[in-house]
Design a protein around this nucleic acid. Structure first.
Lengths: 253, 253
DNA sequence: CGATTGCTTGACTGGGTTCAAGGCCAGTGG
DNA sequence: CCACTGGCCTTGAACCCAGTCAAGCAATCG
């Protein structure tokens, strides 16, 4: 069993940068995340319609985007930075269900309540859509709804991978899988073998169902066995990708 | 770490009942699963269109519906019985990602490959749709696609609950959560406190990330503490639902 | 500079796994 | 009718991987 009763009050930090939206943000044509986001389903001609309902919101590291149980009034696209989604048990044990990168979508909810919490890991900028207006867009642009379904299917497949990891993999297999996943999503442009870990050891543990100490020890073991190097704690150099793949339990990488 | 190298050849049993489809099955109006299935999104007038492309398939307990990696040519609705979805590691470790009951849908896939395996737990009857024809239906009936998206959102939410369970809950909390979940889905009509467990202890373990022995021991402990009774191994009488809810980590039950 | 924060390391503990045996029941065949 | 068999579940004993508790260390910041 794993208990994490670290304090939960980080969102106070965020108050430094009040997440005030700039309205009718327009200019989706210039959005760096568009090509990777659900908005790619829209033609250039349709962009103004969605630009009219959107706004930008910024978050400081540790600042909360929304809490589990909040009324799900908004949907978001990550434009910049990294966001984590997580669920809590009453005693503070935390499970991070995913890390979101630019282009990723969040906010789908049942019964109009978010079923998980979302918090900025790094400084982040999100594109925000009011729920009702967004739902109108779905009716108007079926391609957008189709894209959302594809999106949800992808997430479902990753969720199942993650269940396999959490239910059956060893600490070393979990770390290896995680590093390969991060390599896919956050490799340094220029050197695909240098992976940046924007999140803390605590976050990695909460994502992999491990404690911070086990994460640290396992990373050290991978380092000592020559599979990876650690120029600094938030940067991993993958020395032997094949070994990592073998450790990870080989899905498809 | 958990290893399950039980044999995988059960589908031979299924050969006794060759899963031969009865074609153009028609008669969706009489389908017992319709109200709970995605087909509820269609009006009575639209039913013939989908009836024309569907067929019925039957499976014996242990018989495989499809394997991870197979070309995803078909989508299915469970009409009768229970089906399990699971993923395997190379050494045989198994994670069941979900149990499906009548009305549940399966088969959404990326890149035209199933990303998990599906197998009948009990004798089961499934309604089968060829992929291409089904996709045409989605274009023709946007309400169906919308329903599918809602469906996927629901599954995603359960998947996140399951990640919390697998990553952070104790054996006892997992079992309590599982029994409450099964009560919701498989309570005996007549007495909502008698829950039928159609799957083996091995399946329960593979779903909860535990070994068969831990499942057995934990069930015994719950029995000894008076929370449940076991008339027989596949039937649970819930004596103290509140205690179960407390044990489970209380989500929303 | 002391204090704080985040990461690492060490020693010990413990919950769940592993290994092994035994019980129960349905099906089978002598 | 009963011995035998094989599945499935339960129980016991020993072990081990990851958790817990507790320092220690390095970088950052008032």
């Amino acid at each position: 069993m794993a208990t994490n009763d670290r304090n939960q009050g980080d969102q106070a930090i965020g108050a430094l940068i009040p997440a005030v939206p700039r309205h009718g943000g327009g200019d989706c044509a210039a959005c760096g995340a568009r090509a990777q986001s659900i908005c790619a389903a829209l033609s250039a001609g349709d962009l103004p319609a969605i630009a009219a309902i959107r706004s930008d919101v910024r978050f400081a590291p540790g600042q909360s985007v929304f809490f589990e149980g909040d009324p799900a009034d908004s949907l978001f696209n990550v434009k910049l930075g990294v966001v984590k989604l997580f669920k809590l048990l009453v005693d503070g044990r935390t499970q991070i269900t995913g890390f979101l990168f630019p282009g990723d979508f969040l906010g789908l909810a049942l019964l109009n309540k978010y079923s998980y919490s979302a918090e900025a890991v790094t400084a982040a900028e999100l594109c925000k859509f009011p729920r009702l207006e967004f739902e109108n867009m779905l009716v108007r642009f079926p391609a957008l709804e189709q894209r959302l379904l594809i999106n949800a299917s992808n997430e479902l497949a990753s969720a199942q991978d993650q269940m396999l990891l959490l239910g059956r993999k060893t600490a070393q297999e979990r770390l290896a899988t995680f590093l390969l996943m991060m390599q896919k999503r956050a490799a340094l442009p220029g050197d695909p073998n240098i992976v940046i870990l924007p999140m803390s050891r605590q976050d990695i543990g909460d994502y992999l169902g491990l404690t911070i100490e086990t994460v640290s020890r396992t990373v050290t073991r991978l380092k000592k066995s020559g599979v990876i190097e650690l120029p600094d704690p938030n940067r991993v150099l993958i020395q032997d990708a094949d070994a990592l793949k073998t450790f990870s339990g080989i899905e498809d990488f």
